[in-house]
Design a protein around this nucleic acid. Structure first.
Lengths: 377, 377
DNA sequence: ATACTTTTGTAAATAACTTATCATAAGTGG
DNA sequence: CCACTTATGATAAGTTATTTACAAAAGTAT
């Protein structure tokens, strides 16, 4: 059992729920005898362990198998605009250790990258490290060329496009590295951890900016050049249009994103610089802030309605800082979705707030790294 | 070689381009020796045949293998609002025989279904039938519950939801049957036949109604309940809103679809009842028609821009009757897409008209049936 | 408790696949 | 023509998986 990541049974259990031997057989396409033998081998090697038994259907109940969460660790990194979170996980995604780094995306990328790598190294070898690290995932606030493992250009991360991020980190840290866009990874974590049965899933992140992740048939949808889910600059905002930070007019971000709400609140004399402070004002009950959030939710709702019409997901989940407004944010979205979409698309659609919290990014990064354990790189 | 559909090599070649032995090995994960043996066995059985040789890269050129197009036939059915097309294909999708049926979707579904089945049976056993029929695919103008193999309710096909279409046809015709939405299947055919290298693909059908099909990573995106691609009732049309046939206001269909253009042209005194007649007027150069088509193309362009922003396809293709307007239809779409989407999403995006013609529906149906040959039903 | 169902374990014979090696075929570039 | 490269074919030995058959375990229904 040199590299368990190559074993199809182990891989199946890595990225999915616990399964019975019978399910494993059908999924990996092995006969009952062979599957049973290999399950036993994996169990003897300590890579997998017994899970709960399933309910009996008139016969002996099937027992399930799951990965041994303590066999390896994972590292997730979530790079934000001013801060990066670096988390050491067990394979079962328990948080073992964590560090927050202040970073500046406009500073020298190589230096920032080295700071992240050094931090990951500290966690990997620190007191809380219970096992070798099997892989590292990074969530970045930029479009990602997923196959190349680097930031797609042009992006907001000036200078980062030049770096072969995956290769650099892999040689620096001696472990497999996987990259993806932060919203994609938040979507992945929310779906895998909180909506495991939902195979058609849309996650809208409403924070400083607005973006979305989409899962169809259980697979993250990445698009041809890594820009899928870039819904912040869709142009359907109400008149009068306002200037967006992308230079165009009419983008929904310019009316509904955290930065735009902060801008408007500042113009009204509030001390409010970013999405987080918008939510603070909101919680304190500032009426002008509530009005803005309500308007924002309806604008986001128009795009949500488009997403539902196009993709026909089974669940639509709102995350990001602004989703802290809870039902208020959902109300506008529900209003627009139910108003604008056909009943067939909405009657079985679930709409809700993200159940995951501020760790969704690192969790998604770790899930990605876990899914790629042992994959050819 | 009882059922060749179970052979992974045969299946690979069924739904893909000709491949060299080397490519086949890697795709199906067999060693060179075994793959070679099985390729030879398939060739001896007449299921596959040699294709062209690839260009040499300094050594002996690799020869490719492709399916034997004459080993089996396929039937595709494209059900429209007033007409159904039933086509007998070879496995290589050459047209062997064809029939057009007048139908009425509002009539008794069982009777219509029987007419289709009888027609399929005639073609399957007729003079032009060169081989046994391996499967039948049907394109229907309704949302399809793909896993159940029936029309999802509620739909425009009143009464059809009650029928277990797949089971009925399978037992009636004694062959595997696959169903899908017509736009999905047009999308599939256009991509597989005319854009085989493009794995992220969006197809907009602008005819009597407006809908789209989406392919990501080479897979048709069907959504949770079969309504994906239902973009006709997205609400972004310009003021003043007009009443849509769905009962809402502001749907793009009510401004940009064939039925809406016909309605407007009629109101202006033209004799114009459907999308086809709109195109006839257009070709004759009627100025009021040209103006309407231009406006329509820009409205479709707004939705196209949303699709591009969300899905980041590598190609966006316009089909359906209205795409007969050619560059005029493309112009408005290009205008909106380039105006509204970020450069990263558009700089490598191809926008064009469908290369396939009026047989796209039946071709897609046949491709679907072919892909499912031997699959568990 | 008894009959029934479904899951799991084991062993032996058979079938399939892989690895390794050698030989041959059919191109390219000089 | 010759050296070099890549593709293909054939064979043997060794490994792994499948099939078949029997038995036991652990539940449910009556």
């Amino acid at each position: 059992m040199e590299n368990p990541g190559h074993d199809p049974i182990y891989r199946l259990l890595l990225d999915g729920p616990p399964r019975s031997a019978r399910e494993i057989e059908t999924h990996v396409g092995l006969s009952r005898v062979t599957a049973g033998q290999r399950i036993k081998a994996l169990a003897r090697a300590g890579l997998i362990a017994e899970g709960d038994s399933l309910a009996s259907g008139g016969g002996r109940p099937a027992r399930t198998w799951r990965i041994n969460p303590h066999h390896r660790n994972l590292i997730g990194i979530d790079v934000g605009e001013q801060m990066a979170r670096v988390t050491l996980f067990s394979l079962g995604l328990d948080v073992l250790d964590e560090a927050l780094l202040e970073i500046d995306l406009r500073a020298d990328p190589a230096r920032t990258l080295e700071a992240l790598a050094a931090c990951a190294e500290r966690l990997a070898t620190g007191d809380r490290a219970s096992a070798p690290v099997a892989g590292l995932g990074i969530a970045l606030p930029a479009p990602i060329d997923y196959r190349q493992g680097r930031v797609a250009k042009p992006s907001v991360m000036y200078g980062w496009e030049e770096l072969d991020l995956r290769a650099l980190l892999r040689s620096r840290l001696k472990m497999p590295v996987a990259l993806d866009n932060d919203v994609n990874l938040m979507c992945l974590a929310e779906q895998r951890l909180h909506w495991p049965e939902t195979r058609h899933f849309v996650f809208i992140k409403a924070g400083t900016g607005i973006g979305c992740g989409m899962i169809t048939d259980g697979q993250l949808l990445r698009g041809a050049f890594g820009t899928s889910g870039d819904i912040g600059h869709i142009q359907h905002s109400p008149e009068p249009h306002r200037l967006c930070r992308c230079g165009k007019q009419g983008c929904i971000e310019a009316h509904a994103a955290g930065w735009a709400l902060a801008r408007d609140l500042q113009a009204q004399g509030n001390d409010c610089r970013d999405a987080r402070e918008v939510m603070q004002l909101y919680v304190r009950g500032a009426p002008e802030c509530r009005a803005l959030v309500n308007a924002s939710s309806r604008i986001i709702g128009t795009v949500a309605a488009d997403l539902v019409a196009m993709l026909n997901p089974a669940a639509l989940v709102i995350g990001g800082t602004l989703s802290g407004a809870g039902e208020a944010m959902l109300a506008g979205i529900r209003e627009r979705v139910y108003q604008r979409c056909l009943p067939l698309a909405t009657e079985r659609l679930q709409i809700g707030s993200a159940r995951g919290g501020e760790r969704l990014g690192v969790q998604g990064a770790a899930i990605l790294a876990r899914a790629q354990m042992g994959a050819p790189s």
